[in-house]
Every structure is written in C-alpha cells, then in structure tokens.
Design a protein around this nucleic acid. Structure first.
Lengths: 217, 217
DNA sequence: ATCCCCCTCCGCCGCACGGGGGAGACCGGC
DNA sequence: GCCGGTCTCCCCCGTGCGGCGGAGGGGGAT
C-alpha cells in the first residue's frame, strides 16, 4: 500500500484525533505517526519518513516553525510540511514560508479542503496557500522586498518564468521579456516543472492557480 | 457582514422578483435595491452602493449599457456590473465589455449559475464571461474589429474538452476519458482555441480560470 | 579555498501540439 | 427537401516543447 503517509504534529490530542479520523477516511492516506511537541515531531519524522507533515504552530519545547526548519534542514528530499494554525492573522504565515513549508492551512478549514491540500502537496509538490491567507502572505512579502518566500523551492528566476508562463507566453516571448536567451528560459522552465512535479507548462500554470501562487483577476 | 449586496435592474417586475427569490435563498446574499429603468438603476446604485449589479440590457429611458457606463464612470471602486440579456448573439456583449462590465449572463442561465456568477464577481473580481467571448474582450479593448465567429459559444463537447484541458491532460488522455479518438479531441481543441481567440492550450486554460469558466479551490 | 547553488547558454532529439485541409453521419429547423 | 450545426475521424506538416547531457561564471557559505 503506497498511499500518502502523513505525520500529525499537534499538542492537543483531540486535534490529532480529529485529523486522523479525517485522513484515515481517505483510501489513499494513512497516518503513520503523531507528535505532541516540536522535538517529538522532528524525531518522529526522521524515523518514519512520511510524505506529508501536518504541523501545528504552537507546540511545547520548540514550535512548529522551528521544527519545520530542522526537518527540512536535514537535506535530501524531505517531506512536504503543511503548517496548520488557528488564526489567520498571525505572523507565522511568513515564517512558514521562510522555512520552506509547502502549504498553510487554517484549523477551521473544511475536512474536504484538508484532504485536498494533503493530496495536492503530496502529489505535485505545489505550494499550497489558500485564499484565506493569500493577502496575508502578500502583505508580508511586500514588507520584505528582497525575500520572496517561495525562494526555498522555486528560485527567483524560476518564479519570474512561472509568472510569465501563467500569462500564456511562449519560451521565446519570456526570453524577450526577461532579456535572456531562449535556452536560459528553457532551463528555468525545466526547473519549474521539476520542482512542481508536473509534466508540462499547462500543468505548471494550473498548479500556479490552484496553489494561489497567482490568482485570477 | 450582510454578505453580498446586490441591486437588480430590469424593467420587468417578474424578472426582478425571480432574481430576488433566487438570490435571497442564498445565505450570503441580499438584494438591497431594485430599478425598473436605466436612470433609476444609476440613482439606486449611487444611493445603496451595492457589491454587484445585475443589469438588464433593454430598459426604458436609457439602456443597461449606458447605465453601466455612468455607474462605472463615477470613479472610485464601483460595483461589479453583470449584464444580463436574453440572446447570446447579442451585439450588446461587445458593448458590455467596452463599458467595463464584469460579467455577462444569459437570462436562461440556471439559478445555480446565477448565484455562482454573483459570488464570483463579488469575491474575486473575476471577469465572468462565457469563454467564447473572452478573446473578444482583449481585441475589443485594443480597438480592433471583433470578428463575429468568436461570439459563438462553446459547444457542450468543447466545454468538456476545455474542462479536461484545465486539469492538465494531454489530447490523448482526454480522448481516453471521453471515449473518443485523439483526432476528435484535436478537433474540439481547435474549436476551443478558435472560439476563445487564444493561441495554445495553456492560454486556453488561463482563459478558463480568468473567465470563471473554472475556478481554483 | 572549496563546495554548492544559481544563472546563463549550447546541441540533440523525440514528440505532442496546432494549422489547414477535408469527410461522413446525425439531427433539427426552415 | 435542403441546410446549418455538431460530433466523429482522417491526412500532412511545421514547430514549440520538454528531456537529456553538458559547460562556464558568479556568489554565498563554512
């Protein structure tokens, strides 16, 4: 059975139980570990090597952000970390982005959204930031002009290329816009496809929309 | 938080009543004003400042297009105007685009589509047009003569294909899903591209998102 | 000083894609 | 009856795309 292996990290048992019930109801998911503290989360993840970690922000010992940082700092292909929090107006959003989280979810999100989110980050390696926190993320991003949060996965240039891809331009046209050669654009496109785990530019654009990387007017 | 505030402008009382019933059934919408003529629409909108205006085209005194023009010409963040008409091959489509309407709906649209449309334009400021007329928008904005063939709506099959395109499938995969040959899919894709006035499948998917034909989670 | 990542570019190659034709069948309307 | 629209499928053909492997330079990290 090679479903999506998930680890839950939350200090409240009831929350973990609720998440477990939701996820175990899906045929393609299984919860392979739980943690009640940040340090526990790190060790559990290192032990069971899950595909996705649902990481609460507020936890004893070390918080979810630091735990995420350590997990993703291990090197190699780490799990996708989806940061879960209660309040949408807290600054953890930016921190989550900075340390390389793949997604951000609110605890009040519908169960359906939760499983969809897990599936998306597990499958396509997309960045997943729902509409609820998009404005927030953008606000923080504006406050820190030189620190595009997505740099963890997509490089700055790759992000540029993806944005232009999402306007329907060809590689040659993107090259013209960026003032580089077509071969360079091809390289960046290849990078985007690899990092987002999709097949072609069309799927990349879809992922950009679905993840909130860009949003419709 | 009264939800989405809507003004109805239509010279037929029954139509207004029908729309009101449909919209009031939604917990997140409320009809805050009605108008039976174009001039009335302008004054009502200025008075109640709604989020969305459902604007009939044919109305006494001044028509819906001119009324829309005046409303959106007021400056500042005006409401989203969705132009409603009976016929789809109406030349009013172009006029609606020109004066800055946010959407275009047919009166025979299902109630479900109506509320979805209102919600969409209110929430995301999307342009809501049948994919068929999207290419027109760009060309018309550039001041170029709009070619009539594009005003034709997508056929049911073409809509199916577009939806599948927007999930990132190749032509061959779409063919498999629909149980037809690859050549058939190519035909439908060609139809979609022609009618939406775009160049390739990626732009078609973008148009689908931007037009509200499909929407991200 | 060394390593690693990023940006830049090169060639080759297979293939999906899209344009431009067309054709037969069905169905509804004039 | 005929015609217009839709759905189905066929051909050829050019090309943009994406995978592959490589290369050189710059800059940050340790």
């Amino acid at each position: 059975m090679n479903g999506i292996r998930v680890v839950l990290a939350d200090d409240e048992r009831m929350v973990r139980t609720a998440l477990r019930v939701i996820l175990e109801a899906e045929p393609d998911m299984s919860v392979v570990g739980e943690a009640a503290t940040g340090t526990e989360a790190v060790s559990v993840v290192r032990a069971v090597r899950p595909d996705v970690v649902l990481m609460d922000v507020r936890m004893p010992e070390i918080d979810g952000i630091r735990a995420t940082e350590r997990i993703l700092g291990d090197g190699g292909p780490g799990p996708r970390v989806v940061v879960v929090t209660t309040f949408e107006n807290d600054s953890y959003v930016y921190d989550a982005l900075r340390v390389g989280a793949s997604g951000f979810l609110l605890k009040r999100a519908a169960a359906e959204d939760l499983v969809q989110a897990v599936r998306l980050v597990a499958r396509s390696d997309s960045l997943l930031f729902p509409a609820a926190v998009r404005g927030l993320a953008a606000r923080y991003a504006r406050g820190q002009p030189a620190a595009p949060p997505w740099a963890r996965r997509l490089t700055e240039r790759e992000a540029d290329v993806l944005r232009l891809m999402a306007t329907g331009l060809t590689n040659a046209e993107i090259a013209g816009r960026l003032g580089v050669g077509p071969a360079t654009v091809k390289s960046h496109v290849a990078g985007v496809l690899a990092k987002t785990g999709v097949r072609d530019r069309t799927q990349a654009v879809i992922a950009a929309y679905e993840s909130g990387f860009i949003s419709p007017r």
